[in-house]
Design a protein around this nucleic acid. Structure first.
Ligand code: MN
Ligand code: MN
Ligand code: ZN
Ligand code: ZN
Lengths: 140, 140
DNA sequence: AATTATTTTAGAACAATTCTACACTGGGCT
DNA sequence: AGCCCAGTGTAGAATTGTTCTAAAATAATT
């Protein structure tokens, strides 16, 4: 679904900053970014945008359901362009985050939700040490 | 294992504050606490301890392996007296955290760790809405 | 007792995020 | 075109959990 449609569906006006930031994020590739990453991406792309607007826009995208907030680290919030149910491989030293497709893991024995409560999400985080893909290998 | 033994094993001197804070935490009940919770518990128990010491002590306990750090929320770090492999039921509105025994969940289809990387932990968080146990029910 | 190492602490510093309060835009209306 | 106004964008201040600093207190060692 094109960004403009998604914004409209979510009741967000298609403003220049939203289109610019959305364009950086929703290019078909699944991304895991921090607000700072987005600010850097914008700067490199020649988009002038304040950090406050980056935060506002990311939060609006989350509220609109076109971005997902991922919490893995106390001092860094990740935003995930993959809003489907899925899990994560987290490389703690580098901060790299990789998707694990939701249907590639099977979780058995989930407790039943008690009365008055609902399961909103089941999230699996595989915390890794070491490096995600051999960085700095001979094939460079 | 008694606290004194654990501290010694971890190379931590059995100082008054460590004994006091450890005594509050390791009483046989599994607890999920924040630094602020611990400061409050200490105050109520008549233990005079600075917040800096609470943080120092909790971090030392984590480094010593007798406490586990749990990250579920950007602005609140939980410390868990249950250091075994297990999972969590997190009630987002109240902040309540309940243990799910590690062997009550079965996770199938875990990807193999790539070369140069190791799986440090597999953590499942079941995010719940609603209330953990009917609080404010007629039976009060 | 003197010396040295460790612990404890108050308060400053830090950093990610949010808030505030004002300036700017842009589309609807005349 | 010119006005209006709700919505948008922003700088900079505020917030807040945590860490750092640097000094005081305490404990161990000689
Ligand atoms: Mn923060
Ligand atoms: Mn914080
Ligand atoms: Zn993802
Ligand atoms: Zn636990």
């Amino acid at each position: 679904m094109p960004l403009l449609t998604q914004l409209q569906t979510a009741g967000l006006r298609a403003t220049p900053k939203r289109i610019a930031i959305g364009g950086l994020l929703f290019d078909g590739v699944d991304r895991h970014v921090t607000a700072d990453d987005v600010a850097d991406m914008a700067r490199k792309a020649g988009i002038k945008v304040s950090l406050a607007t980056v935060y506002n826009t990311l939060n609006q995208f989350v509220a609109a359901g076109i971005l997902k907030r991922i919490i893995l680290d106390t001092d860094r919030t990740y935003f995930d362009t993959n809003v489907s149910d899925h899990h994560h491989l987290f490389y703690e030293t580098s901060g790299d985050l990789l998707d694990v497709p939701g249907d590639s893991l099977r979780i058995e024995g989930l407790p039943a939700a008690p009365e008055g409560a609902r399961v909103r999400a089941v999230e699996v985080v595989i915390r890794m040490s070491g490096t995600p893909v051999s960085i700095g290998s001979t094939a460079g």
